[in-house]
Design a protein around this nucleic acid. Structure first.
Lengths: 214, 214
DNA sequence: AATTCTTCAATTGTATACAATGAAGCGTTT
DNA sequence: AAACGCTTCATTGTATACAATTGAAGAATT
């Protein structure tokens, strides 16, 4: 893993917390590389929207409840759109990719891992794999690009960490609905199911946040 | 203007053409700065989607007809969405900003400038100002961000260069419809008018492209 | 003749020194 | 005591040298 990826992990796992200041100098010491790769990583993280530039250095970005709402809302719009395109353009290969990804998702959520954090990492990975397969079936790289940008941010909230078993199963079931609609080339249904799926995720995060803010 | 902005101009105006190779070394000579700022600029341009990275250096990105279609389509989705949000959240200040921007747009398109290229630059700027005002009224910085990304690319096609007077007037009129809908807090109408407006732009570019490809 | 290996040149990745910039603290003036 | 300007220090911007990597050309082997 290069510096960018490691710093991204640090941001996602919460090693760097909102409002923490990041200066090039300090980071060279921490990661044992020179300022050049640090600068490069910081710039990329800025693109990702994970850090905000100041006149001097950066801060780890903090997200309000409103931010989260808005991020999930556009994400729903975009992924719903992608799903509707996928219903039109999907190939047999795409379909089998989706099936496979969701089968793996099911395997993971039904197996209780030893370590919770590791288990969640796996769930996350398989979930991502499914969404990726849907996106790719759309054959629209530009939309994919935009979605990719909006998908990174929610990782910061560790949404899956708070999912109950029941909710993971709901996700699995909605994935199935989405696949079926795409298979049937039912654009409108694919879109709507995807919207629903993402809004469920949103509400879970929002709820959790409200609870921890009290 | 810094190196990034100047290089972006070079890409938009067509000084660098699709498939041209860009290497750091060569660019240092051209822009009379060291590799460090060049690298920074290239990275940013990559993010903008104006250039594509190779294993060695970059190429100026080329867009197929399909690309253009897809880019305008998501843009329509996103700007339509932003317009619908603006209809909900707009303040008096937002409205007067839109009015002002569109008044300026009208002034420009009715005045025949001396130099065509300069005139078009002005039209572009005022048009952009209007779209910006609409976006800002949405109060959704994340959507703004995504739109900004998708708005840069069409500049490469010099769409406005091909606009007839009649078509500029149509744009002005649709701007008015959009403003009115936002003023009336008619979300659905604002969204639909924005969709229509952007699709008109798309079709103009597509038509022009078809013509020049023959 | 085709294929693999070797070498070399071109290009990017990294480290680091120096320049420019901006922010904070200090002292002077009113 | 407040406001202004000056100095200093921390931090980023830029240039450049050196290391690592890749691609291409040519040589050697089958």
């Amino acid at each position: 893993m290069n510096v960018y990826e490691r710093m991204k992990q640090a941001l996602i796992t919460g090693k760097y917390k909102p409002e923490d200041r990041l200066t090039e100098e300090a980071l060279t010491g921490e990661w044992k590389v020179s300022r050049t790769p640090i600068r490069s990583a910081l710039k990329q993280l800025e693109f990702d929207g994970l850090i905000t530039p100041l006149k001097r250095g950066y801060v780890v970005r903090s997200f309000s409840q409103n931010d989260i709402r808005q991020i999930y809302d556009v994400r729903s719009l975009l992924e719903g759109y992608a799903a509707s395109l996928s219903a039109i353009h999907r190939t047999e290969q795409d379909l089998s990719d989706m099936y496979k990804a969701n089968a793996e998702f099911q395997t993971i959520i039904t197996s209780q891992g030893t370590n919770k954090t590791e288990h969640i990492q796996e769930v996350l990975k398989k979930n991502h794999k499914f969404h990726d397969a849907v996106m790719r079936a759309s054959k629209d790289p530009h939309t994919e690009d935009l979605i990719r940008k909006v998908v990174v941010l929610p990782l910061v909230f560790h949404s899956f960490y708070w999912f109950q078993q029941r909710e993971l199963e709901q996700s699995f079931e909605l994935h199935e609905v989405i696949i079926r609609a795409i298979k049937d080339q039912d654009s409108a249904r694919a879109r709507s199911a995807m919207h629903e799926h993402i809004y469920q995720g949103r509400d879970r995060v929002l709820e959790q946040l409200k609870r921890s803010d009290l």
